[in-house]
Structure formats: structure tokens, C-alpha cells
Design a protein around this nucleic acid. Structure first.
Length: 372
DNA sequence: CATACGTGGGA
DNA sequence: TTCCCAAGTAT
């Protein structure tokens, strides 16, 4: 017998987590929403971009700029990673106008290490667009037009920053709803059904708090592995919990294996402790970021890669680095040389002290093994 | 609809 | 170690 497949205990005997739990039927949408909002009132996470439920009820609203910035940073990125980076961004550019006025390369540099660099390019583009129109739009429809703002972010900003009723569906809410209604359609086909079921229980009031309540529940209670159903405020109306198979939802298709790719990068050093970097093409992998010059990254490694080196020199192989991208494994040979006399960098290249270069992680790894 | 697009942390 | 995946978007 599954540990969790039991009847709900009397609320007094359960951890303080679900004092606000729904105790009995009927499980109307309104009761589900109330149970989650009550739970949020006492269990909301304290996050730097968030106005907590108490202050929110007193009329305080979060800065749309901060909400937007946090939502973009949180796309496919953990809260723990985002927290300090969000603080740095907000300190450096306190307003959307300030960010819009900054050079794109500064925004990319501040983003270095966070991944999915199209987000940073779109972040800057969006800041410019918002500044031109005099501020953030306050509807889902208008938000979704902006660069880097899709279904999720448009709904999240509309709900959290502007208190619009918007059905917000991220990975957490997807999981909560899939379990709540035991939706066994495989992802991503289940998305329309999940959105519809979320819509059913979504309240007209406190839409933003409800979105955050669902996300907090998904992150801390209705977790992907070993969900804490015993302290869940809505376990008694959860179909998956009733069936005892909460971990089976949502249903995900088997993942495909990642192919291997190889390449080489060339670390050219000058006499001033600097290294030669170049700006990567605007589109594609690590687009717009600084990196070491090198070969393309392909399935078959070529023996003679030195044609792609920045200059003919005494290249010494110092080792290799491995890195895992979303869709492939990379092994990078790393070569080092001193710039020959009379070497002239091209206009798209720049000399930077390696410890000061703002680089994507894979490039940081490559640079690190060139250091003594 | 499928694929490209990063990274780090936890089990 | 290996696998999973975290507040997705663009094409």
C-alpha cells in the first residue's frame, strides 16, 4: 500500500501546513481557489521580486519592471540561481528606462552564466520597446507582443503586476493541475486541457496571488519527485492523490539521447596578461556573447583545425573541457599560444584580461584550464 | 508540432 | 555517475 494512499487525516493532527485544507466535499472551483489562497497567506515564499500577500492586501503592488525582469530570468532557471542575479540587475538598472539606455553588450555581460542568451537579447529589445511606448502594457494581449514575452510571461505579468485575471500556466502549475485532475494525456498534448482545467479553478480576485500560490505549491509541496501530499492543502480533492499515483503526473514522453559534438578553441595571449576574445554571431548558440575563437562544433572532429585559429602560431594543447548543452554533449580541445610579433587583431576581436571577461560557462571552463 | 536554446543542483 | 529538470520562447 502506498504511503500516501490514505484518507485525509483530521486537520488538527496534520502538520501546520494545511490548517487551511479543504476538509470535505464538494470540491467546487471556488473552494479549491480559497484553500490555495488561504494556504498562500501563511506559506508564501519571501522573494525579492514579490509583494507578499499581507502587503498586497493593503494595496501595494509590485513594480511591473521587477516582475517582468524576474519572470524572464526565471524562465527555465531555478529560484536559487535567479535571486542574486536579479538583485544585481535591479541595482545596476533600477528602471526599464535605465536598462533600455544601456548598451546591449552590457546586458549580455550581466547575463553571462545564466544561459539561454536569447533571453538577454530580448530583454534589452523589450526594455527599448517598453521605454518607447512609455511603460509596460497592462494586458496579457499587449504584453505578449513584446520580445521574449510568451504565453506564460504575459499571463504572469498581467496577473502579478496588474492584478488582471490571467490563467498562468508554468511547469509548476502544469504539474499541480495534471495531478489535481489526474490528466493522463502525454505532454505536451495535455497543455490545452491543463489550461482549461486551470481556468476552471482560477479566481477572479487575487489572480496574481493565486498564480504565485500555485507556483509555491508546485515548488515546495507538489514537487516532481516525492510530493508532500500530507501537508498539501488540496490533497483531499486531488484525483491523483486519491488514486495514490501522484508521481505519475504529468505524463512525459521518453527523452531522446543527446548526441556528442567536438570542437576546438584557441586562447591567444599577449604580453599584457590579456587574451583574445570575439563576439559570437547574433543568432544561434551563445548568440551575442563573447567567446574564444575556434572551430564549429560538429559530430565528427577534424584533425586539422588550425586553419580556424586566429593566427599561425605555436599552438599547445592544454587539455579539453566537456560541457552539456540542452541538446548535445560537447568536448572542446583547448589550445594556447602567445601572439606572434606583429599580430593584429581584427575589428570584431578584443583583448581582455581573462579573469575580467564576462563569458558563458563553457567559455569560462575553457579559459580556466589555460591558467597556471 | 518539433526543435534550438544553457546551466547548475539534487537524487 | 547519470538523469532529471526549473516561473519558456521563437521559429
Amino acid at each position: 500500500m502506498d504511503l500516501y494512499n490514505i484518507n485525509p487525516m483530521p486537520s488538527e493532527t496534520i502538520a501546520s501546513g494545511n490548517k487551511s485544507a479543504i476538509s470535505s466535499q464538494p470540491a467546487s472551483p471556488k473552494r479549491v481557489a480559497k484553500a490555495l489562497l488561504d494556504w498562500y497567506d501563511s506559506h508564501a515564499r519571501d522573494l525579492p521580486w514579490r509583494i507578499g500577500p499581507k502587503a498586497r492586501k493593503l494595496g501595494r503592488r509590485p513594480d511591473p519592471y521587477a516582475v517582468w525582469l524576474s519572470e524572464v530570468m526565471l524562465q527555465q532557471t531555478t529560484v536559487a540561481t535567479v535571486k542574486p542575479r536579479f538583485e544585481r540587475f535591479l541595482k545596476r538598472w533600477p528602471t526599464v528606462e535605465a536598462m533600455a539606455a544601456a548598451p546591449l553588450d552590457d546586458v549580455l555581460g550581466e547575463w553571462a552564466g545564466l544561459g539561454y542568451y536569447a533571453r538577454a537579447r530580448n530583454l534589452h529589445k523589450c526594455a527599448v520597446a517598453v521605454t518607447e511606448r512609455g511603460g509596460f502594457p497592462d494586458t496579457e494581449e499587449e504584453l505578449k507582443i513584446l520580445p521574449g514575452i510568451g504565453d506564460y510571461t504575459a499571463a504572469a505579468v498581467a496577473a502579478i503586476a496588474f492584478d488582471r485575471r490571467a490563467v498562468v500556466v508554468d511547469g509548476n502549475i502544469e504539474r499541480v493541475v495534471a495531478r489535481l485532475f489526474a490528466i493522463d494525456t502525454p505532454m505536451p498534448g495535455a497543455k490545452p486541457e491543463i489550461k482549461a482545467r486551470a481556468d476552471d479553478i482560477w479566481p477572479d480576485l487575487r489572480s496574481g496571488d493565486f498564480a504565485q500560490a500555485m507556483m509555491d505549491l508546485g515548488a515546495g509541496v507538489c514537487r516532481p519527485k516525492t510530493p508532500l501530499c500530507l501537508i498539501c492543502p488540496i490533497s483531499s480533492v486531488c484525483d491523483a492523490y486519491t488514486q495514490g499515483n501522484q508521481e505519475d503526473f504529468p505524463v512525459r514522453p521518453a527523452k531522446k539521447p543527446k548526441p556528442n559534438r567536438k570542437g576546438a578553441v584557441f586562447a591567444l595571449c599577449n604580453g599584457r596578461g590579456e587574451m583574445l576574445f570575439e563576439r559570437r554571431p547574433e543568432k544561434g548558440l551563445l548568440g551575442g556573447m563573447l567567446g574564444l575563437p575556434g572551430t564549429a562544433w560538429t559530430a565528427d572532429q577534424k584533425d586539422e583545425c588550425f586553419a580556424l585559429a586566429p593566427v599561425k602560431a605555436e599552438w599547445e594543447r592544454v587539455g579539453e573541457v566537456t560541457h552539456v548543452f540542452t541538446h548535445f554533449h560537447l568536448t572542446l580541445d583547448v589550445y594556447v599560444a602567445s601572439a606572434p610579433k606583429g599580430f593584429r587583431k581584427s575589428s570584431d576581436q578584443q583583448w581582455i584580461k581573462p579573469e575580467k571577461a564576462l563569458l558563458p560557462t563553457v567559455m569560462k571552463k575553457a579559459v580556466s584550464i589555460t591558467q597556471p
